[in-house]
Each structure stands twice: as structure tokens, then as C-alpha cells.
């Protein structure tokens, strides 16, 4: 427990190490740590900003989606209206066509009827003459009775 020159030696060593630490050890380490701190802070801020941007983008996308939906609904509506319009038009056209076909069919039927009637009429004269001939058993003068028969046929 003697106090001796070791004391002086230790004081000198103490200042030596402190100065070394102050010059070469502390500043680079603490500078690097502060720099890293700054980097991390910047990184966090950037992440914050990015998430905020993302939120905005999502909102915008949602808006666009809504808009698109409204637009699509409008288009569907229009299409439906157009479709029903087309159906209506087609129905009308079909009705008109059907009327026309009906009319023409009716006219044809009438024509056919008339023709058949004409034929019948012409044949009735002959038939009735033949019949009458058979009934009378004698030849009937065609010329003499033609007017009578024709008259009959006209009455049919």
C-alpha cells in the first residue's frame, strides 16, 4: 500500500487513453450512430409518406370504381331501353306484316272462290242440260234453252 511513482504513471496513462479516446474512438462511432439514426428517421418518414400515398390512391381508386359503376348502370339502362324499343318496333312490324299477309291471303281466297264459282257455274249449265236430257229422254235443243240454263247458272 505504498504510494509511489505508479501514481504519476497512472495519471499520465489516464490522460493518454482519454485523449486517444477523444481523438480517434468517440467521434467516428458517435457520428456513425447519429448518421444511422438520421437514416432510420428518414426511412420511417418515407414509409409514413408512402402509406399516406397508398391511402390516397385507394380512395381515388374507390372513387373511380364508383364512377365506373354508375356509368355501367347508365349504359345497361340505355341498352335495356333500346332493346325494348327494338322489340316494340319488331312487334309492330310483325303485326303490319301479318295484316298484309292476311289481307293478301284473303284476297287470294276470294279470287279462288270466285274462280271456283265461275267454273262451277259453267259446269252447272252443262250438267243440268245433261240431267235434263236424261230426264226428258230427248235431246234438248241447246240453242233453245241456253238462255234458260244460263239464267239458272247465274242464279247459283
Amino acid at each position: 500500500m505504498n504510494i509511489n511513482l505508479t501514481l504519476i504513471g497512472q495519471v499520465i496513462a489516464f490522460f493518454g487513453f482519454v485523449i486517444f479516446c477523444m481523438k480517434y474512438v468517440w467521434p467516428p462511432i458517435i457520428a456513425a450512430m447519429h448518421e444511422r439514426e438520421q437514416k432510420i428517421a428518414d426511412g420511417l418518414a418515407a414509409a409514413d409518406r408512402a402509406s399516406h400515398d397508398l391511402e390516397l390512391a385507394q380512395e381515388k381508386a374507390l372513387d373511380r370504381l364508383k364512377e365506373a359503376k354508375v356509368e355501367a348502370a347508365g349504359i345497361v339502362d340505355l341498352a335495356n331501353r333500346r332493346a325494348s324499343q327494338i322489340v316494340e318496333e319488331a312487334k309492330n312490324a310483325a303485326l303490319v306484316e301479318a295484316e298484309r299477309v292476311k289481307t293478301s291471303a284473303r284476297a287470294e281466297i276470294e279470287q279462288e272462290t270466285n274462280r271456283a264459282r265461275e267454273t262451277l257455274r259453267s259446269q252447272v249449265a252443262v250438267l243440268s242440260l245433261v240431267g235434263a236430257e236424261k230426264v226428258l229422254g230427248a235431246t234438248v235443243d241447246k240453242q233453245a234453252h241456253a238462255d234458260l240454263v244460263n239464267q239458272l247458272a247465274a242464279e247459283l
Binding site: 479516446c21 467516428p28 456513425a32 438520421q38 437514416k39
Partner: peptide, 17 residues
């Protein structure tokens, strides 16, 4: 003391962010 200085100096030299 030298051990302390050497260890910490090595770290200080390659200190980076």
C-alpha cells in the same frame, strides 16, 4: 487500457451508418 483502445479503435475505424 491498450486493449480497450485497440478494441474500440477497431470498431471506430469500421463504424458506418
Amino acid at each position: 487500457g491498450v486493449l480497450f483502445s485497440a478494441l474500440f479503435f477497431r470498431v471506430a475505424r469500421k463504424a458506418s451508418s
